[in-house]
C-alpha cells in the first residue's frame, strides 16, 4: 500500500497542533496553579506585615524590601558598566581582536550558571573581602551576573539606531560623545530599558547566587552590610522546609506576578523600539 502524502501531511499537522497546544498548556497550567492556590492568601496585610515563627504566620514585608534593595542597587551598579561597554563596542571601536575578546568574555559570563556566581561571590566578596553575608555581597554578585544581559540588549538597541542620525549630528559639528549622549542614547533608551527590565526579572527570581552571598536573615535590612532574604529565597525556604504551603503559594504568586509584570513592560518597550525603526 502506498502512503498518501496528503494524508501524512494532514496527520503531521494535527500532531504538531496537539504537541504545540500541549506545550503551551503545560506552561499555562503552571501559572494557573500558582494563581489559584496563592490568590486566597494574598492581601495587603500579607505584603506589609512581618513574618512570625519563621514565616509560618504573618507576611513577607522584609523579603520585599530585601528584594527591592538587591535589585535596585545591582541595577545601579550594572547599568553604567553595561551601557558603557555597549557604547564602547558599537561607537568607539571597529571590529578588532580586543572587541572579539570582550565579546567572548561577555558571552562566557552569560553562560555561567548562577550557582557558580554564588560560589564566586561566596569566596570573593563574603570571605576574601570580608563583607560577610550581606546585601552588598549579594548586590555585587548579582550585578556581575546581569551584566551580560544589559550589554547585549544595549548593544542591539544602539546598533538599531539608523546611521543617518549620527551623520546628521556629526555634520552639525557635534563630537562623538555629544552624538552619543544627545542622539544615539535617546533613541536607544527604550531598548536599553528592555535589557534592564529583563535583568530585574532575572535578579528577582534568582536563588542560588543570592542565598550564598546575601544569607537568609529574615530581619528587615537597615543597611547594605546587613544580611537579608529575598522573596525567591523566602519562597524556597518555605517550600523546602514545609514551613507553610499556603504562605509558599502566596509568596510564589507575588514573585511570579511581579516577574511577569516586569517582563511584559520589557516586551512592550521593545516592541515600541521595533515599530519605531522598521
Amino acid at each position: 500500500m502506498r502512503i498518501n502524502p496528503k494524508k501524512v501531511n494532514k496527520f503531521i499537522q494535527i500532531m504538531l497542533n496537539v504537541q504545540a497546544f500541549f506545550t503551551v498548556g503545560i506552561l499555562i497550567v503552571i501559572v494557573a496553579l500558582i494563581l489559584v492556590k496563592g490568590i486566597g492568601n494574598i492581601n495587603l496585610e500579607f505584603l506589609f506585615s512581618f513574618p512570625e515563627d519563621m514565616g509560618r504566620h504573618g507576611g513577607i514585608y522584609p523579603t520585599i524590601i530585601g528584594t527591592i534593595m538587591l535589585v535596585i542597587l545591582s541595577i545601579l551598579f550594572a547599568t553604567p558598566l553595561g551601557v558603557g561597554t555597549a557604547i564602547f563596542l558599537t561607537e568607539y571601536t571597529k571590529e578588532t581582536i580586543l572587541t572579539k575578546i570582550i565579546r567572548f568574555g561577555v558571552e562566557s559570563l552569560a553562560g555561567i550558571p548562577s550557582i557558580l556566581y554564588g560560589l564566586f561571590g561566596f569566596i570573593f566578596f563574603v570571605i576574601k573581602l570580608k563583607m560577610g553575608w550581606s546585601i552588598l555581597s549579594g548586590v555585587l554578585t548579582i550585578a556581575i551576573m546581569i551584566l551580560p544581559t544589559i550589554i547585549r540588549t544595549s548593544e542591539e538597541a544602539i546598533k538599531a539606531v539608523p546611521k543617518n542620525f549620527r551623520i546628521v549630528s556629526y555634520s552639525l559639528g557635534a563630537t562623538k560623545w555629544e552624538t552619543v549622549i544627545k542622539v544615539v542614547l535617546p533613541s536607544a533608551t527604550p531598548g536599553i530599558l528592555t535589557g534592564i527590565m529583563l535583568s530585574v526579572g532575572r535578579a528577582v527570581g534568582e536563588t542560588a547566587a543570592v542565598i550564598f552571598t546575601m544569607g537568609s536573615s529574615l530581619r528587615l535590612p537597615t543597611s547594605i552590610m546587613d544580611s537579608g532574604r529575598t522573596m525567591a529565597v523566602h519562597f524556597y525556604i518555605l517550600a523546602r522546609e514545609g514551613i507553610s504551603m499556603e504562605k509558599a503559594y502566596a509568596t510564589a504568586l507575588v514573585l511570579v506576578l511581579s516577574i511577569l509584570l516586569i517582563n511584559i513592560v520589557a516586551y512592550y518597550t521593545m516592541n515600541k523600539v521595533v515599530s519605531r525603526f522598521s
Binding site: L81, G84, I101, I102, I123, T175
Partner: peptide
Amino acid sequence: IREKIVKNTLTVFALSSLLFLFLIFIFI
C-alpha cells in the same frame, strides 16, 4: 580632552567584564 577621558573610561568599562570573568575563573 573630554573626548579622550570619555573614550578611556568606556574602554575601562568594557574591560571590566573581562576582569569579572577572570576573577571568577581565578577564584574558583
